[in-house]
């Protein structure tokens, strides 16, 4: 059963910093998580990838906020307005611990807000959280 779920939940990391992206990937490998992993470098690329997904594979999005071209908050607003994407589970993963950013992100119904600098130097803790999350939490299904 767990194997099935790993297959059905893909991780989309929207992050402009290569080192952070490598960090997430490294943590996934370290935990030996087999979920499909995709990375976009900004909001526009992220939206393209979300819209191109096969219908039976829900994404779990890890979203940075400060990015070129389209910021995380802008991308979130578009996701929530789009009827096909609106149920997407989004975790914000950012360096900003500004209250303004937090409020703006939660206003777009994110699943959680994680400040990178509060994590250890690797993303181990975060991957553990996500591992538990998709074990216990039911994913939205397509109608």
């Amino acid at each position: 059963m767990t194997i099935d779920q790993y297959k059905t939940v893909s991780i989309l990391l929207v992050e402009d910093d290569d080192v952070d992206a490598m960090g997430v990937e490294r943590a996934l490998n370290k935990m030996k998580l087999a979920n499909p992993f995709l990375r976009a470098r900004d909001g526009i690329e992220g939206l393209e990838m979300l819209r191109a997904k096969p219908a039976d594979h829900p994404y779990l999005v890890l979203l940075d906020l400060n990015m070129p071209r389209m910021s995380g908050i802008e991308m979130l607003k578009i996701i929530r307005e789009d009827p096909l994407l609106t149920r997407t589970i989004v975790f914000v993963l950012t360096t900003s611990d500004d209250d303004i950013d937090k409020v703006a992100a939660y206003n777009e119904h994110i699943a959680g807000y994680v400040v990178k600098t509060k994590l250890d130097t690797d993303f181990g803790e975060l991957m553990q959280l996500l591992d538990h999350y998709w074990r216990l939490v039911e994913m939205p299904t397509d109608e």
Binding site: D17, D18, V19, D20, M22, G23, R26, N66, T95, S96, K116, T117, T121, D122
Partner: peptide, 17 residues
């Protein structure tokens, strides 16, 4: 200070890897 933190974090991560 905000923008300087991101690359710094990269350095810290790379060092630990």
């Amino acid at each position: 200070s905000h923008d300087l933190k991101a690359p710094l974090r990269g350095i810290m991560q790379l060092a630990s890897w």
